[in-house]
């Protein structure tokens, strides 16, 4: 099993619950905007502490309310591609890409900088500051930064939202290659049915 999740997350005034387990490949959380899909990703990443429940990824327990287990975000080895990207504005693209890479031990690396740069086609961007990138460029850098941090799984929150229609196909095939070539389990959030149907091996409706 890749993802075994059964949690309740407190969010503003409402509470979001999710219970699913999924095999290899891409698990899509699918539902309307505001249903709490992002909160579930944040709980899996350790940025939000669930009220109760259990999160296990590839056999590793990240959170268990009953046992009191709750790994810190930096100990979870998740590559999080945020909806709003969150590239560090004061660091060049190269330093953004290498931020997590430098912190992860060598045996956790699944890609080196050169591989990632070629894989994503972002070699010409390395010296640029994030604010000078287009939506699609910034999206690929964000994916690269997550991949280079030595992740054991990926969390992707609406990764096509900041990409214009013409570039979507390119990003989609990158995501498929991550699944097929790097064989990383991916938890994928989207409200777009066509996108989910193309990518997902397991679909989990939320809300």
């Amino acid at each position: 099993m890749s993802f075994e999740v059964d949690i309740a997350v407190e969010r503003d005034e409402a509470s979001v619950t999710a219970a699913f387990s999924s095999g290899e490949g891409i698990t899509a959380l699918f539902g309307p905007s505001g249903a709490g899909k992002s909160s579930i990703l944040e709980a899996v990443a350790g940025l939000v502490r669930p009220k109760r429940g259990r999160i296990v990824v590839s056999g590793r327990t990240l959170f268990d309310g009953k046992e009191g287990t709750c790994l810190a975000p930096e100990g979870r080895a998740c590559g999080f591609v945020f909806q709003d990207l969150r590239l560090f504005p004061h660091r060049k693209v190269r330093d953004n890409l290498l931020f997590g890479h430098r912190l992860a031990s060598d045996d956790r690396h699944i890609l080196e900088l050169d591989d990632a740069v070629e894989f994503l086609g972002i070699g010409h961007l390395l010296g640029r500051m994030p604010r000078t990138l287009s939506g699609g460029e910034a999206q690929r850098v964000a994916i690269g930064r997550a991949l280079l941090s030595g992740p054991r799984f990926l969390l992707m929150d609406e990764p096509l939202s900041s990409v214009d229609a013409g570039r979507r196909d390119g990003i989609l095939s990158v995501i498929e290659r991550i699944r097929d070539e790097l064989r990383l389990p991916i938890l994928y959030v989207s409200h777009d049915r066509a996108e989910v149907e193309r990518l997902a091996d397991t679909i989990v409706p939320i809300g």
Binding site: L47, E74, F88, R145, G150
Partner: peptide, 23 residues
């Protein structure tokens, strides 16, 4: 300072102190 950037640094493997120093 956007706290979300600090969250991003944490998911990339930076502990609290390193997040503070680098972000």
């Amino acid at each position: 300072v956007d706290r979300k950037l600090e969250d991003a640094a944490r998911t990339l493997g930076a502990g609290r102190w390193r997040t503070f120093a680098s972000i």
